[in-house]
Design a protein around this nucleic acid. Sequence first.
DNA 1: CCATTATCCTAACGATGTAAGGATTGTAAC
DNA 2: GTTACAATCCTTACATCGTTAGGATAATGG
Lengths: 215, 215
Amino acid sequence: MSRSRDQKPTGKRDTYHHGDLRRALLEAGRDVLAERGVDGLSLREVARRAHVSQAAPYHHFADKAELVSAIVQRGFDDFVSALTAGAEEAGESALARLTAMGLRYVRFAVDQPEVFRLMFRPELRQVEPGPAADAMEAAGLASYQVFRDAVKAAIREGSVQGQVDDVALAAWSIVHGLATILVDGPVGMGDRSPDELATVVLLALGAGIASGRLP
Amino acid sequence: MSRSRDQKPTGKRDTYHHGDLRRALLEAGRDVLAERGVDGLSLREVARRAHVSQAAPYHHFADKAELVSAIVQRGFDDFVSALTAGAEEAGESALARLTAMGLRYVRFAVDQPEVFRLMFRPELRQVEPGPAADAMEAAGLASYQVFRDAVKAAIREGSVQGQVDDVALAAWSIVHGLATILVDGPVGMGDRSPDELATVVLLALGAGIASGRLP
DNA sequence: CCATTATCCTAACGATGTAAGGATTGTAAC
DNA sequence: GTTACAATCCTTACATCGTTAGGATAATGG
């Protein structure tokens, strides 16, 4: 009743009368996800951490799916940021930029495995068709576009040969595959670091898409 | 009370007094999984389909996790069978056999997406340490070994160059990545068939691991 | 200042995973 | 064949979850 009145230490409160619950729920959701994994992510637990009742989230998210979808969107945003940041660090060479993106891709997965898993899990994308679904779809496509553009630049640069979509698919596949294996894989990778493994894999593919032997 | 007495049309009944519930539960579990996906897979629903009470499964599986783990084991068995069958069809060339396995890999994922997803989902592998966990671990490793052996043969044959583990990781990554993208992917693949896409991707990698440019 | 609307809470429903205790049936020893 | 034992199954119950309904409170617009 009056408890929710004296809980402003969380920070800003720019929206309506209590606090900006939406953002608080999102943050709490990300925390729970990172701590307890996908199965431990319950709406009630999130509400608990935000110090609100179990039904309060329904004023900001239609579903649990919509909360999850918001977390996923945020994940894709960070993902795209990481990829582009990696590319910019890499300098001018389009091939080097592409490789750097691959490295960041794998690192992102290893650093935030739970978010990464959620991002590529379709049953969680079964949110009611609407703005939430569209936004998540767009976020996913955006990250693919960043990757595809880098491939296109490398082809234009001449350091890579082949059809854009073919090369992009191959590059996306091998990087996504490694990331998935490192995160989910039943097979241990010895004591080699993710960066090391990513380099190995990218070199293998790089030799292929640079060799001009593609149809 | 007397209903469970006259339900023998399901087939064999070689175990204890009612029917061989364990097998029936496994089959029902696979059905539910294929029909309603991972989220629709509940122990109670499985029990319902087997015409037993909700608590009956606990005499054959300690957990829901143990049922799932059994389904996953079965999945890995079928998976290994599919891979080796593909290899045998491919003839003598070790490289051709490796490629054929890649194709089967992707096909398996597309044909049985729900099972495939479960197979590579670690939070479902969080079953209590014990025989069930060990069996599932072994099943996963077995499928990797089949793949790795094919890589080793191709290297011995001379059609592929590089360290076994490096090449195996690259090959597994690109194939697993494509499979995952086709099954989970946020990005549509146009109207090209999985087989077509798998060929493209495998060629890209093949050119790399055959080029001798690997470190 | 007042009505409207947004936000939040309490209470409840159905579904789920799981445990406890009792009933029933197959197996085995006599 | 009868009797004891163990395996199998059922009913009941509890905590948790997602979600809805109806009522309280506080911010906003006129």
